[in-house]
Amino acid sequence: MGYIQEARENHVKKKVEEALRSKMKQKALKECDHYASKYAECAYGRTLSVIFKCRNQAKELNNCLHLYTNDSVLDEMKREYALQHDGKP
């Protein structure tokens, strides 16, 4: 019975982590909307040339997204979740 309980807890932990990752990505897209708009404006109507012509916009967007989607941000979100739901750090 211990194995089944552990498997259930791991499943719940995975679901929580997936939800936190999704929340993290949504926040990043919201915070970086300006850069996403600039990239989309540059890319509009282009095909292969987007790689060369919009390189700076893509780099700015990726840098912004990385500020909000990295392991330290996820770890902080996990800590906050644990404090809110378990009362443990």
Rank of each mutant, 00 (worst) to 15 (best):
I4N: 12
I4V: 14
Q5S: 15
Q5V: 13
E6K: 02
E6D: 11
A7C: 08
A7K: 00
A7S: 00
R8C: 12
N10L: 09
H11C: 02
H11Q: 10
V12W: 08
K13R: 03
K13W: 03
K14C: 05
K14R: 04
K14Y: 10
K15E: 07
K15M: 08
K15L: 05
K15G: 09
K15Q: 03
V16H: 01
V16Q: 04
E17G: 01
E17S: 04
E18A: 02
L20F: 00
L20V: 04
R21T: 02
S22L: 13
K23T: 06
M24V: 05
M24I: 04
K25G: 09
K25E: 11
Q26D: 12
Q26T: 15
Q26M: 15
K27Q: 14
A28L: 09
K30A: 11
K30W: 10
D33W: 10
H34D: 03
H34R: 03
H34N: 12
Y35N: 10
A36N: 14
A36Y: 14
S37G: 15
S37F: 15
K38L: 12
Y39W: 06
Y39Q: 07
Y39M: 05
A40L: 14
C42Q: 05
A43C: 07
A43G: 05
Y44Q: 11
G45W: 07
T47E: 03
T47S: 07
L48W: 06
L48V: 15
S49Y: 00
V50G: 00
V50A: 10
V50T: 03
I51V: 15
I51Y: 03
I51H: 07
F52W: 11
F52M: 04
K53D: 01
C54S: 06
C54N: 04
N56I: 08
N56H: 13
Q57P: 01
Q57H: 08
A58L: 03
A58D: 00
K59Y: 01
K59I: 02
E60G: 08
E60H: 04
L61P: 05
N62T: 02
N63F: 04
C64T: 06
H66Y: 07
L67Y: 15
L67R: 15
T69M: 10
T69N: 14
N70I: 06
N70D: 04
N70H: 06
N70V: 06
D71W: 13
D71I: 11
D71C: 14
D71K: 11
D71M: 09
S72C: 13
D75M: 12
D75H: 13
E76K: 09
E76C: 09
M77K: 00
R79N: 02
R79C: 07
R79D: 06
R79Q: 00
E80N: 13
E80F: 12
Y81D: 14
Y81S: 14
Y81I: 12
A82V: 10
L83V: 03
L83C: 10
H85A: 03
H85V: 07
H85F: 02
D86E: 15
G87K: 06
G87A: 12
P89L: 10
